[in-house]
Design a binder for these strands. Structure first.
Lengths: 205, 205
DNA sequence: TGCTACACTGACCAACGAGTCATTGGGCTG
DNA sequence: CAGCCCAATGACTCGTTGGTCAGTGTAGCA
């Protein structure tokens, strides 16, 4: 009997799902998709292997769910933060800053996310397609802002989609370097540095 | 008996090695490290599996050798092309252009190279360390040019290493997008576009 | 208190693939 | 031409792991 909009089963499913996803994120981040074992995830989640298969039909499905969940959370945060900024420069700054800060809080997720770029070369199929979709949704946030900037003449009239890709790439690159421990130093400094470079690069004058 | 500087054995080893590496590059590029099988590589190379183990002691060793070989070739090309350019702007343009063009000729290698960035998260050890070394050797080529530009005042006085990383990242990003088929269009256009953005971003004025 | 439903368990299985090694055969030497 | 050497072979071993399913225990109900 459904009470308060949720049956007992729904509540349970939600709880287990969250538990498993959280463990999966940790294990996949630490070992990568192939080196991670389903047993390992089950142990980290504190359940038996069979239980995982009650909620996800395969190892890949678990991986994919963890990935999607993280991307969703990031996207929401980006929309919120960019929406809060008033100027074009502010929105672009916000994109870079939000993404860079989010990572410090969610290193595990980002390791999965970025390693998926590498893996994407190997799976030319369904998952790959869906991953691209999610990635480009982010790029589109930037494209909108760029369009506005060009209209206002604060930004030179350059190819929007290519420019959005470049901004994404720089941010992604900086984050990768940090995750690999190849660059340290204060995040906030890095944010300002990147924004400055970008803004000089795309701005009018 | 060594004749003309090479024994028969050396010639054979060289031949087999090249043969195997070429096949490995193809197979790893197509399937990724884990999904590729040693049997598959052997078949592609036209030899039996046992033969591979006469020349490399493990699957990883083959992978690593293929990766290193490609990085070496790219580095030589970069040095040559950048050395040929006379101005600072020319050298930076040359870095971007050489790398982007190289890819069109060596897509297989690049797929391995870039997927290694993802994999690097999982192997925090020896290989990872050596990979970083090779990556940073490339960044150093850029840093040198940046130093010169700053001295000449053609480039603003910005953090050299971070800037070098950014230029690498943009190029890498653009290449990744092409490899994944997410961006098409003429390579030469893309080179100009990226160079323009970079130069506006780092230049004085 | 007895019964049922079902979430959960973990021993088990089958497939797979890295790495081995006894055997082969072609080329070179004497 | 005999005989040896050793590169090449590929059937085999054996550890690993994704996925299964018969069995267990407990919460909730009558």
């Amino acid at each position: 009997m459904p009470v308060l909009g949720k049956t007992k089963q729904e509540v349970l499913t939600e709880f287990r799902t969250a538990e498993i996803l959280e463990a999966a994120r940790r294990v996949f981040a630490e070992r990568g998709f192939h080196e991670a074992t389903v047993d390992g995830i089950a142990e980290a989640a504190g359940v038996a292997k069979g239980t995982l298969y009650l909620y996800y039909h395969s190892k890949r499905a678990i991986y994919w769910a963890a990935l999607k969940h993280g991307i969703g959370a990031l996207h929401e945060e980006l929309e919120r933060e960019m929406g809060g900024a008033r100027t074009v420069a502010g929105k672009i700054h916000s994109f870079i800053a939000t993404k860079m800060r989010f990572i410090e809080q969610h290193r595990d997720f980002f390791k999965i996310y970025y390693s998926e770029f590498g893996n994407a070369f190997a799976h030319p199929t369904q998952v790959h397609e869906e991953f691209r979709e999610l990635y480009q949704r982010q790029a589109r946030l930037l494209e909108c802002v760029l369009r506005e900037g060009i209209r206002q003449r604060t930004i030179r009239n350059i190819r929007r989609s290519a420019t959005a890709a470049v901004i994404s790439d720089i941010t992604r690159g900086a984050i990768t370097q940090r995750l690999l421990g190849w660059s340290k130093g204060d995040v906030e400094n890095e944010i300002e540095f990147i924004f400055d470079l970008v803004w000089k690069g795309i701005g009018n004058r």
